[in-house]
Structures are given as C-alpha cells and as structure tokens.
Amino acid sequence: MKTITSIKASKSQTPLVMITAYDALFASIFDKKVDMILVGDSLNMSFNKAADTLSATMDIMIYHTKAVCAGAKDTFIICDMPFGTYTDAKTALKNASRVYQESGAHAVKIEGGKERAAIIKALTDNSIAVMGHIGLMPQFVRSEGGYKVKGRKEEEIKKLIEDAKAVEEAGAFCLVIEGVIASVAEEISRSITIPTIGIGAGSGTDGQVLVWSDAFGFFNEFQPKFVKRYLDGHRLIEEALDAYVQEVKTRKFPAEEHTY
C-alpha cells in the first residue's frame, strides 16, 4: 500500500493512479489496483442528483469514507472535506479529526490555494495529512458563476503557481490540479516538489484521477471533455436488467438450478 512517504517519492516517476469510490463494494474492486482512492464530495452529484457538491455534509462524507475504508484495506484513502467544514483552522481541525477518528482515512482533501494555506498548516501541524486542490474547484462553483477552466490568462497562471507553492509550503503531501490548461498544469507540476494529480489538466502531471461513475459510463447525464469512458456501464446494466425482468415475467427465472 502507498504511504505518504512513497506517494511523495513518486514525484516525476511512474504516474500515480487515483479513482473515486463511495462504498465498500466498489472500493473492494479498486483495492490494490490503484494507488489512491478519493472519497469525493462528487458523490453528491453522481449519486444524490444534487446540482453541485455544496450540500454534502460531514456526516455524509464520514459515512461513505468509513464504508470505503472497510472495502479497501490495502489502498491509501483520502476523504474530501465538504463545503463549510474548514472555514477556519479551529473548525477544520475539529472536522478533520472526526475523519481520522471515525473513518480510518489516511488523509483529507481541501480546496483552495494561498487563502487556505494557514488552515492546511494547522492540520499538518496536528498530524493530519492533507491533499490540496487548486484550479477549477467545485466548491467555488456558485461564487465563480459556474465551472470555468483556469490558466487562460497570465494573472491566472501566476496565481495558480503561487497557490501551488503555498499549499506545498503549508505541508500538503500532494496536490490535485483540476480544469487547468495542460501546459499550465505541467508548469505548476515543475514548480513544486510534491506530486500533482490531474483531472482535466493534461498528461503533464504526476498522476490522474477520475470519478468512477464517469470513467465506467454509469453517469449518463453528460460527459465532460476530460473524461474517457472505459466501459459503457449504463448500457450493460440496462441490458442485464431487461433480461432479468423478462425472465421473471416469463417464469424462466428462477430455474431448477436456482431452486432449493
């Protein structure tokens, strides 16, 4: 299993693989096959049909993180800190401590750059491992008026690099870069010594993450440009369900071999 030390040592080596999971069943499938599992607040959209991630709560995230930890015994697990749970150092420490005490996660993830550096430092100073997150930040969607790709303008590029350095200096062991122009994400990766994990940020980062329901075609409402579907899961489940319904209605199931 990856550790903080081995993750940090992966900088500029074989790319790190991270995927989301929200329950023990899928976590057990992903266990040992990926380097890290993120229990993302993306579950609020993918599985709760919410318009954004903002209404996810601490209780919800701990519940799902605990389930993932039960299913994936040999994979490094990160819990997304939901909106409003790290507004200041005291609040962040209280909530992140709950994650450690109640779920078994190895780290937490926090969105924000320089403005969150003091909060990240408060956590790392108290032995809580933190993964940073800059660029397009889903928890900022309402204040920014939508999901906007970053790094198109010079001032944005400068700020992104400053944010990355501030997060690193605050003690984060790794950094997610989301929705950033590929060349800029690569420049950010070169500017810091901790590994970067890209999502919609090109191949120049130190690893990649995808939401599992996007990657395997179960979330069918829309497909972001950065998502590659490795399976048409929605269609396969529909076909299997249709077969089950048909066999029940025609009494083909259960057959003799399924009967005591």
Rank of each mutant, 00 (worst) to 15 (best):
T124D: 02
S127C: 12
I128G: 00
A129G: 05
V130P: 01
V130E: 03
G135Y: 07
L136S: 10
P138G: 08
F140P: 12
V141D: 12
V141W: 10
V141F: 09
G145K: 06
Y147F: 13
V149C: 13
V149R: 14
V149P: 15
K150R: 09
K150F: 05
R152Q: 15
R152T: 14
K153E: 10
E156I: 02
I157N: 13
L160Y: 08
E162K: 04
E168I: 07
E169K: 11
G171W: 00
C174L: 08
L175S: 06
E178W: 08
V184H: 06
V184G: 00
V184K: 00
A185N: 09
I188V: 12
S189T: 15
R190P: 14
T193P: 15
T193L: 04
T196H: 01
G198V: 10
G198Y: 02
I199G: 00
G202D: 11
G202E: 10
T205D: 06
D206K: 01
D206A: 03
G207L: 03
V209C: 03
W212T: 02
D214Q: 09
F216M: 02
F219A: 08
F222H: 11
F222I: 05
F222G: 02
P224V: 06
P224D: 05
P224F: 01
K225V: 14
F226Q: 09
K228A: 12
K228C: 08
R229V: 05
R229S: 11
Y230C: 07
L231Q: 13
G233E: 00
H234S: 13
R235G: 03
L236N: 12
D242N: 15
A243T: 15
Y244G: 07
E247N: 05
E247D: 12
V248Q: 11
K249L: 05
R251N: 12
K252Q: 15
F253C: 02
P254R: 05
H258E: 10
T259D: 11
